[in-house]
Computed example of a mutant assay.
Amino acid sequence: MPVATNDGVSCYYERAGAGDPVVFVGDVGYGAWQWGWQHAAVAGPYESVVTDVRGAGRSDAPPGPYSVPDLVSDLVSVLSDAGLRSATVVGAGLGGLVGLEAARTSGRVDRLVCLGSGASGADLDLEPLYGSPEDPETLERSLERALSAEFVDAHPDAVRQMVAWRSDEDAARAAWEAQAAAVADYSLAEPYRVTTPTLVVHGLEDAVWPADRGRELADALPRGEFVGVEGAGHLVHVERSKPVNDELLGFLADA
Rank of each mutant, 00 (worst) to 15 (best):
V28W: 05
G231A: 07
V183K: 11
L199H: 13
R215N: 07
A154G: 03
A154F: 01
D185Q: 14
L204K: 10
A43P: 08
G95N: 08
L115R: 14
G228T: 01
E225N: 05
L126T: 01
E137T: 13
D70V: 06
G214T: 07
V25F: 15
V159E: 04
R193H: 06
D170S: 15
L75I: 10
V78D: 07
P69D: 05
P128F: 04
R173M: 03
S167H: 11
D70M: 14
V72Y: 10
D153Y: 00
W33Q: 02
F226C: 06
D185H: 12
G250S: 15
R58Q: 12
L100Q: 11
V236E: 04
H202R: 06
D185I: 00
Q161C: 01
R141K: 12
M162L: 14
Q161T: 13
A40P: 07
L147Q: 09
R193V: 03
A92H: 15
G44R: 09
L143A: 09
S167N: 01
V113D: 01
D7T: 08
A154Q: 13
S117F: 03
T51Q: 04
S117Y: 03
E144D: 06
V76A: 14
A184G: 15
G91E: 00
R215W: 10
A122W: 00
E239N: 07
G107K: 12
D212G: 14
D70P: 06
R173Q: 10
Y46I: 02
V163D: 01
S86W: 01
Y186I: 05
A146V: 03
A149R: 15
D20R: 15
L188A: 10
T105S: 15
V23W: 01
S80R: 15
R173H: 13
G64Y: 05
G118R: 10
D170E: 05
S106Q: 13
P222F: 02
P197G: 02
A218K: 13
G116Q: 11
R240E: 13
S167K: 14
A164M: 11
R108G: 01
D70A: 12
G233R: 10
A180V: 01
D206Q: 09
V236Q: 05
L115D: 11
Q34P: 00
L252G: 11
L94C: 06
V78P: 08
P243H: 03
D157E: 15
P197H: 02
R85P: 12
E247V: 00
G224E: 08
G17H: 06
A43T: 05
P45W: 01
L143H: 08
A32N: 11
L249C: 08
S80Y: 00
S106F: 02
F251Q: 09
A4L: 04
E134G: 14
R54C: 12
V229F: 06
G231E: 05
D206R: 09
